[in-house]
Amino acid sequence: MPNIALARPEQSQFPLTRQEAEHAARLWFIPSNQAMTLAEWRDHLLERHLAGIECNDWQERQSRTTAWNDAFNTGVAKMIAGGVRHG
């Protein structure tokens, strides 16, 4: 029987947050964007994203942060594995 992981709610919520997080991860790999550490870059762009969508509710902010971090990690993993190409 295949092992199927159950998605956490934040993995299916906030598609824009997830999409922007994966894109942010890819951007870090452009040499001119490496003035910050990967973690600083992640946190900086998360704060810009949350400010841009005017996320002021702490529970939503916490859920979006979790979704962002998960998607950012996925984006980094795809770049390391060579799954995303810039053209």
Rank of each mutant, 00 (worst) to 15 (best):
Met1Gln: 09
Met1His: 03
Pro2Cys: 06
Pro2Gly: 10
Asn3Thr: 09
Asn3Ala: 08
Ile4Lys: 09
Ile4Tyr: 10
Ala5Cys: 08
Ala5Met: 12
Ala5His: 11
Leu6Phe: 13
Ala7Ser: 01
Ala7Gly: 00
Ala7Glu: 00
Arg8Glu: 14
Pro9Thr: 04
Pro9Tyr: 08
Pro9Asp: 02
Pro9Lys: 06
Glu10Met: 01
Gln11Gly: 07
Gln11His: 04
Ser12Met: 12
Ser12Pro: 03
Ser12Glu: 02
Ser12Tyr: 09
Gln13Cys: 09
Phe14Lys: 02
Pro15Phe: 05
Leu16Tyr: 11
Arg18Pro: 10
Gln19Ile: 04
Glu20Ser: 10
Glu20Phe: 10
Ala21Tyr: 00
Glu22Trp: 00
Glu22Met: 10
His23Tyr: 09
His23Cys: 06
His23Gly: 07
His23Leu: 07
His23Pro: 02
Ala24Leu: 01
Ala24Val: 00
Ala25Trp: 05
Phe29Val: 00
Ile30Cys: 02
Ile30Glu: 02
Pro31Gly: 08
Pro31Asp: 10
Pro31Arg: 10
Pro31Lys: 10
Pro31Ser: 11
Ser32Asp: 13
Ser32Ile: 02
Asn33His: 01
Asn33Gly: 01
Gln34Ser: 03
Gln34Tyr: 00
Met36Ser: 01
Thr37Asp: 02
Thr37Phe: 06
Leu38Asp: 04
Leu38Asn: 05
Ala39Met: 06
Ala39Leu: 07
Glu40His: 03
Glu40Lys: 02
Trp41Tyr: 01
Arg42Trp: 03
Arg42Cys: 03
Arg42Gln: 08
Leu45Arg: 06
Leu46Trp: 13
Leu46Glu: 09
Leu46Thr: 04
Leu46Phe: 07
Glu47Ala: 14
Glu47Pro: 10
Glu47Tyr: 08
Arg48Met: 06
Arg48Thr: 00
His49Leu: 03
His49Arg: 03
Leu50Val: 07
Leu50Arg: 09
Gly52Asn: 07
Glu54Asp: 12
Glu54Ala: 14
Cys55Gln: 07
Cys55His: 08
Asn56Gln: 13
Asp57Thr: 02
Asp57Tyr: 06
Asp57Pro: 05
Trp58Leu: 14
Trp58Gln: 14
Gln59Gly: 10
Gln59Asp: 13
Glu60Leu: 09
Glu60Trp: 10
Arg61Asn: 12
Arg61Gly: 14
Arg61Val: 04
Arg61Ser: 14
Gln62Pro: 04
Gln62Gly: 15
Ser63Pro: 08
Ser63Ile: 10
Arg64Tyr: 02
Arg64Asn: 11
Arg64Phe: 11
Thr65Cys: 06
Thr66Arg: 10
Ala67Gly: 00
Ala67Phe: 04
Asn69Gln: 11
Asn69Pro: 09
Asn69Ala: 09
Asn69Asp: 15
Asp70Phe: 08
Ala71Val: 05
Ala71Leu: 02
Phe72Pro: 04
Asn73Ala: 15
Thr74Met: 09
Val76Phe: 02
Ala77Phe: 11
Lys78Cys: 07
Lys78Met: 03
Met79His: 12
Met79Asp: 11
Ile80Trp: 06
Ile80Phe: 13
Ile80Gln: 08
Ile80Met: 10
Ala81Gln: 12
Ala81Asp: 14
Gly82Ile: 12
Gly82His: 03
Gly83Tyr: 05
Gly83Ile: 01
Val84Met: 06
Val84Asp: 06
Arg85Gln: 15
His86Val: 12
Gly87Tyr: 13
Gly87Asp: 13
Gly87Thr: 13
